[in-house]
């Protein structure tokens, strides 16, 4: 019991919450960026623009099929070869954004495809251009259906930020490791805290997601 009291001293709790803040910071920026980039990539992939869609599609497939850890390594250790030397937090944001954009792109592509079959022709036959039909008819419906899937992808994003501990990003997992690194008796309290805090953040987002889903349908 004493271990638990000591483990949750004000200093340790504050340190853990600082980590939580970085986790949320990385997540929020990556969510916004990957939603925008993923949507664009998904639409490009759906649009069947000559060569462009095929190349984008191939790159997306590659990134979707390798572990996120590798992408984190490539970002942190590989980007400097191209003159970009991100610190750990920006590196984590770039890695998460690259990976999640591709996941979102695939969701968007299949989302558009599932509504577009009848809708696209219908809209085109009323004289709309491809872009008009996409923007005014297909996309609004597609996104309505996609929201729950996209939200659960964002829940995955938050969970996946924990992997960034491997390049010593000062996020929550890393900070918990620092705390139980100073005293192994803190390990059980720290894992309990990690479970509770990650659950709180992710579950909140899940609930919001299902509320939006219910509201829309």
């Amino acid at each position: 019991m004493q271990n638990w009291v000591n483990a949750f001293s004000w200093l340790n709790v504050r340190f853990l919450l600082m980590g939580l803040w970085v986790t949320i910071y990385i997540s929020v920026i990556s969510v916004i960026l990957s939603f925008i980039i993923g949507s664009i990539l998904g639409i490009i992939r759906y649009s069947k623009i000559k060569y462009v869609s095929a190349i984008v599609g191939f790159v997306i497939d590659i990134i979707r099929n390798i572990p996120l850890l590798l992408i984190i390594f490539f970002t942190y250790f590989g980007l400097p070869n191209f003159g970009l030397r991100p610190e750990t937090i920006p590196a984590a944001i770039i890695a998460m954004t690259v990976f999640e954009s591709c996941m979102i792109a695939e969701i968007v592509r299949s989302g558009i495809q599932s509504v577009s079959i009848g809708q696209m022709e219908g809209a085109r036959s009323t004289g709309m251009s491809f872009v008009q039909a996409l923007w005014h008819v297909v996309l609004p419906q597609a996104y309505k259906n996609m929201i729950p899937t996209i939200i659960s992808q964002f829940v995955s994003l938050i969970k996946d930020t924990s992997l960034a501990t491997i390049i010593v990003v000062p996020e929550m997992m890393q900070h918990a490791q620092v705390i139980y690194g100073q005293n192994a008796n803190y390990i059980l309290p720290m894992f309990a805290a990690l479970a509770v805090l990650y659950f709180a953040v992710c579950f909140t987002l899940s609930i919001v997601g299902s509320m939006i889903g219910k509201h829309l349908s």
Partner: peptide, 20 residues
């Protein structure tokens, strides 16, 4: 619970905490 906790946390828990 399993959907909202990172895989890394679950795995490390089984590697470091359970054996202890």
């Amino acid at each position: 619970i399993m959907r909202n906790i990172p895989l890394l946390v679950i795995t490390m828990f089984f590697y470091l905490v359970i054996p202890m």
